[in-house]
Design a protein around this nucleic acid. Structure first.
Length: 240
DNA sequence: AAACTTGTCAACCGCGAACTC
DNA sequence: CGAGTTCGCGGTTGACAAGTT
């Protein structure tokens, strides 16, 4: 079991220790002290430097904000790309990731991941899921159209509209943002003249629609998004 | 203009590892 | 070798800013 250290919990119970945002004056005192003496023992540092802060707070402030070799400000596309790749390899090991990003702190990387990159990647994953779902559905509809035309029993409704259990459910996903009344069909049946098409024409049309749909998604949305975000294609995933 | 929501990020907290005695 | 102390990491929180209704 873990032994309770004197710094745990104790800091917030010690009367007189300041908490919350650091002032410019405190920053100055801490920086001056460390530049002159080095940080040494963090626990004893505040007393020696004349700061009403706990050692832990001083350490955090120095490491994440006051150190001279820190690069602040917006992450470059290259840096974001590196973070995504490193995260795929290392998971949430921020300090290990920071070792690969010069002048960036683990805290900064963690914050950037949680507030920017994670959200974007989740969105992309949902997008990709919906795309695959749509693709599967269109392929299935094409095959059904061929099979039903060839066995040629008269159809009162198109296959997609009959909602057979196990057919629609298996393609539905809670993450999907798409809702298809089947491409090229109205809600009540085939569009005018659609039923008159022969099987090969329908397959051709479905394939064409599928291709258009894929091109629309890939070209205008996902790729654009990646370009905007990383300045590259799907490199971040394929190369890791 | 005010109220509300969402985004951002600095600071804190708890824990395990490493170190010291 | 065991107990106590310190360090460093990752997760979470909360204050503030910006955006939206």
């Amino acid at each position: 079991m873990r032994r309770r250290s004197s710094t745990d919990n104790g800091d917030k119970e010690v009367v007189g220790l300041k908490r919350g945002p650091w002032t410019a004056e405190e920053d100055e005192i801490l920086t001056a002290y460390i530049q002159k003496h080095g940080h040494g023992n963090w626990r004893t540092l505040p007393g020696k430097a004349g700061l009403q802060r706990c050692g832990k707070s001083c350490r955090l402030r120095w490491i994440n904000y006051l150190r001279p070799d820190i690069k602040r400000g917006k992450f470059s596309l290259q840096e974001e790309q590196t973070i995504i790749q490193l995260h795929a390899l290392l998971g949430n090991r921020w300090s290990a990731m920071a070792a690969h990003l010069p002048k960036r702190t683990d805290s900064e990387i963690k914050n950037h991941w949680n507030t920017h990159l994670k959200k974007r990647l989740i969105k992309l994953a949902q997008w990709e899921s919906a795309r695959l779902e749509a693709e599967a559905r269109l392929v299935r509809d094409s095959k059904q159209a061929v099979a039903l035309t060839e066995s040629s029993p008269p159809q009162e409704q198109p296959p997609y509209a009959r909602s057979e259990p196990g057919q629609t459910e298996e393609l539905e996903s809670p993450t999907s943002t798409l809702s298809f009344p089947a491409v090229g069909h109205t809600a009540n049946g085939y569009a005018d003249g659609e039923m008159g098409l022969n099987a090969s024409k329908r397959v051709e049309k479905s394939n064409q629609l599928l291709q258009e749909f894929e091109e629309t998604l890939m070209d205008s949305d996902i790729d654009a998004w990646f370009d905007d975000s990383f300045g590259v294609g799907n490199l971040a995933f394929s190369s890791v």
